[in-house]
Design a protein around this nucleic acid. Structure first.
Lengths: 287, 287
DNA sequence: CCATCTTTGTGCACACGTTCACAAACGCAT
DNA sequence: ATGCGTTTGTGAACGTGTGCACAAAGATGG
């Protein structure tokens, strides 16, 4: 099926009145940048099998995209292919790596060494491509001093020294949600300008700092949405259409809501339908 | 800064000649669906603080989007606001939950109980919103029998029975990349129709099955790309422009490549520039 | 009941992303 | 050399997403 998922909704800062940069300073569209790692992975696999060249069609299949998109993506990098032949695997690996900035080393700090922090510290894909764990940090004295993936867990107080000393520009936040913003602020203050946030929190950062988020809960909810749709696909006609109807019905409902919901924290909504699993897609507030 | 990240590049199946569904069967755009969980989270927080109503401006700030977008998003669900006042928090929580399918319970199986699997099993955000871990599965006999987050780890062979018995429709893959496709096939075969994939692999699934992926490595690479750009932003004029130049220069480079790269698996590219960190953005293959 | 103020809902224009489809470029055989 | 088959690179059309700006709708006060 392949859900559309055009925008995965990730930009964190609410476009704080900023200068409205086209976000593709030197021409490469964001959508393309997001796919480059995919191509790189497929190419690396081909490289390991000593395949010398690959056509856009083959590579596209391996990367899970269609060939037209792939060719257009590559066209932003330059004309690295040979018509009638395809692309030189090794050459392309190098070009993409260079474009992504993977020809240099990126030290990374991980803050919050709980279950997830541990998992990330042990993640093999880290070192494989230019990323190096510069330090594991935690605020909990009980955790500090232990070790994960062969690295000692150090105290948050060392953050500033580590970031400055090792030129760390990327930080990974794996703390509980409550601590995320605070940790984020400290990372930024220390000089980190790119943050990967695993905490289910909207982070606010100053201009010039990039934030990407990974949120299990959101992904599951999106899946649930589509799953639900699959379940009730036959009765496409009705399916809660009344909710979308304007006019008196809606207006009345609105009044009703406010009338009884003054103090808030009432029941979710006046009279949830008594029907079971399937009945959730009935009409307006039960009616 | 807020990277654009329009498409996070996630659709897995390469549009397998399918029927080209607009992916918004009943009108709600994918981009909106992806933001609903964000709104829901913000609304839940307000609800816990017993805030009765909220304006689009306030809610938008809390969710990290702009208010026009939020209003447009809500307009796809129906007109649930009151002009001059705002939105009823409790009512919206219910409506969004219903739209996302969170008013029912979604049993989930997690396959691959390594570091990451453990972390996910312990993840609180699971049960909080309609998701319930139906079972933890692993193929490794050394892991089977142990327990994580109070649940026993069961053997892969029980998968089919569990999926059928508990009506599981969502599966989470946290296996090593090599096993992911195989596990995926088995999940699908057993009846799972939505998959959340944490393994760095492109999964191929039949039509009707949704796949979303979460890939740490890709996220980091995207951050690195932007980080690199920040580092070299002054010399916007040149910046490896030659690579993009067509004509004889390029053609010659192409020939050169193929001439020496016959057997493949040669060095990354003929003569990597001898320059250091900063020099990576020089000209064509050194020239 | 009217005036005023607030906030929603949405038409419209624009930016971005995707896909088609085809000419140009290349390898290779004759 | 010439012609043929293959594959790239890209112009153009289309679809999706975003943001502005404003009319309409309701609240509030007199």
């Amino acid at each position: 099926m392949a859900i559309g998922r055009p925008t995965q909704s990730s930009s964190q800062t609410p476009d704080a009145g900023a200068a409205r940069r086209p976000s593709r300073a030197r021409g490469i569209p964001e959508a393309t940048v997001a796919r480059l790692p995919l191509y790189l992975r497929a190419l690396t696999a081909l490289s390991e099998r000593s395949v010398p060249t690959v056509s856009s069609e083959e590579l596209a299949t391996a990367a899970g995209v269609n060939s037209a998109k792939l060719r257009k993506d590559f066209s932003y990098l330059g004309s690295y292919g040979t018509r009638g032949v395809g692309y030189d695997v090794e050459y392309l690996v190098y070009q993409i790596s260079r474009e992504l900035g993977l020809t240099q080393d990126w030290p990374v700090v991980i803050v919050g060494i709980g279950n997830l922090g541990h998992a990330l510290a042990n993640y093999g894909g880290f070192a494989s491509r230019g990323f190096r764990v510069a330090a594991l940090l935690d605020a909990d004295p009980a955790v500090v001093g232990s070790s994960a993936a062969g690295l000692p867990v150090r105290h948050m107080d060392e953050l500033e020294a580590i970031v400055a000393g090792q030129q760390v520009s990327i930080g990974v936040i794996t703390t509980p949600p409550g601590a995320a913003q605070q940790v984020c602020d400290r990372l930024v203050e220390a000089g980190v300008t790119s943050i990967l946030n695993f905490a289910p929190t909207v982070l606010t950062v100053p201009d010039g700092v990039d934030v990407r988020k990974v949120d299990l809960s959101i992904e599951l909810q999106i899946l649930a949405f589509h799953e639900q749709r699959k379940a009730g696909e036959e009765p496409t006609q009705d399916g809660g259409m009344l909710d979308r109807a304007p006019g008196p019905v809606r207006a009345a409902a609105a009044k009703l809501r406010r009338a009884a919901g003054g103090t808030a924290k009432a029941e979710p909504a006046k009279g949830k339908p008594g029907k079971g699993t399937e009945g959730e897609r009935s009409a307006v507030m039960p009616a």
